Computed example of a mutant assay.
Amino acid sequence: MKIAVLSRNSHLYSTRRLVEAIKAKGHEARVIDHLKCDLTIEPTGPKVHYMGEVLDDIDAVIPRIGASVTFYGTAVVRQFEMMGVFSTTYSQSIVRSRDKLRSLQLLSGAGLPMPRTAFTNYSKEERSLVDHVGGAPVIIKLLEGTQGLGVVLAETRKAAQSVIEAFHGLKARIIVQEFIKEAKASDLRVFVVDGKVVGAMKRTGQEGEFRSNLHRGGKAEVVKLSRLEKSVAVKAANAMGLSVAGVDILQSSRGPLILEVNSSPGLEGIERATGVDIAEQIVAYIERNQPKKKGTISKLKA
C-alpha cells in the first residue's frame, strides 16, 4: 500500500515514527503537507493536487492536522475520503474534537463522566457560571486552546469573575470547569487505537503548575490503568468517532473524569514513557481495515 502522512513537518517525532512504521511493514510512505494541497471538484470527481501532480494513487492517509489549520486540513482529509481513500481519522471527527464545547456535549450525551462544566454567551453571568460548577477554585478554558495554552486556574470567586470578564471583553469563547483538587496537577493520557487501549502514561505538572502538559514542562511515567479507566477511555473515543485518539483523564474521588479527547495525539511522550510502538499499532489498524476501492464515496455521519 501507499500510505500518506498528512503533516506539515517531516522532521517531527510523530511524523518520523509513522513513516518508519509504514516502511517497516513493507508499505510505501509519503509525507504530504496538507496546506500545499489544492482541491478540485469536477463532474469527473474530486481530486487532490500536490506539488504539480494529482494524488490518485494513495491507498490510506494518516492525518496529523494541527489545531491552527483545522479548517483547511480537514477539507483535505474530506477530499481524500470522497475519493474513497481510507483515513485513520475521519474529517468530521477531527472537527468535533477541536470544539471543546461540542466534544463535552457528545461525551455527556454518551453518559460519560467529566468535570462539571458551564458555558454562556451572556457577559453578565460570571457569578452564575462559577456557581454552576460548584464554586471557586475553577478552571477557565478558551474553546480553541491547545497544549495547555488558554487555560487559567482562578483560585477565588473574585479572580474567576475578573478572568471571565476579561475573556468576554475580548469576545473570546470560554468554558468554566470545576477544579479537581485531588488530581494534584496530574492526568492520564490514554492512547486508543481501533477500539483498544494500546498505551497509557501519567503526566504530572512542574511544581507550582496546575497543567500537566508535557509541552508545559510536565513529566511522564508509565501507569497501569484500572478496568474502569480503560473502559471510559475507549467509550470516549467511540463517542467522538475516533479510531485513533489520545484521551485525557483526571483521577478524582468520584472516579475517572474525561478531560479531553485528542484527534492528533503526539507519539513522542507516550512511546518514550511506555516503550510501546504506537506508530506500528496505527499502521496495523490500516492493514486490518483494507482501504476501500477508489471512487467509493465515504458515507460519514454529519
Rank of each mutant, 00 (worst) to 15 (best):
G148F: 07
I297C: 07
T296M: 15
K2W: 00
E20A: 12
I164K: 04
Y13S: 12
R96A: 13
R30W: 12
S212W: 03
E221Q: 07
E207I: 07
M201R: 06
G145Q: 15
K2D: 02
V31Y: 01
A185S: 13
R173K: 10
E20I: 00
V54L: 02
P137A: 06
E221V: 14
E178C: 03
F191M: 12
E155W: 14
C37S: 11
A160F: 00
N289E: 10
E125S: 05
A4P: 03
K23M: 03
G109C: 09
G217H: 08
K235M: 02
A160V: 03
A67S: 12
K230M: 15
A273P: 00
E260R: 08
V133E: 06
T120G: 05
L107P: 05
Q147D: 06
Y122K: 11
V223F: 10
G295V: 01
R64F: 05
I249Y: 06
S14C: 07
T88E: 02
R30M: 15
A245H: 06
P115K: 14
G66E: 13
D248G: 11
K230W: 00
L112M: 10
D56T: 06
M114V: 12
M82F: 10
V176S: 10
L188S: 05
T40G: 04
G169F: 05
N262A: 11
D131A: 15
R288Y: 06
Q92Y: 09
A29V: 03
F167D: 00
A29Q: 03
K25C: 00
D277A: 09
L250M: 13
G217C: 13
I41K: 12
K124I: 15
V244W: 03
R96E: 15
Y50N: 04
S226V: 10
S298M: 09
S14W: 09
S97C: 08
L149V: 13
E182N: 07
T88I: 01
A24L: 04
H168L: 01
K299G: 14
G217I: 09
E268L: 08
A233Y: 01
V198F: 01
Q177M: 10
T117H: 03
I278M: 01
T74L: 04
A67C: 04
V198D: 00
C37E: 09
A273N: 02
E268K: 15
Q105R: 14
Q92H: 09
V283N: 00
P265E: 07
I94C: 02
T274M: 03
N262F: 08
R30N: 13
F167Q: 11
N238H: 13
H34Q: 15
T117F: 07
E229S: 07
L257A: 14
R211N: 11
R127W: 11
K202E: 13
S10D: 08
Y72N: 01
G45N: 04
K124N: 11
F179V: 14
H132D: 12
G45R: 07
S123G: 04
S186E: 10
N238Y: 13
V261Q: 13
Y122R: 11
N121R: 08
K47T: 07
G269S: 00
V76Y: 14
E209D: 08
H27G: 05
G208L: 01
V54I: 13
Q105T: 12
L153N: 02
L143F: 02
I249C: 11
A4R: 03
V48A: 07
K235N: 14
L188Y: 13
G217R: 07
A273M: 02
G246Q: 03
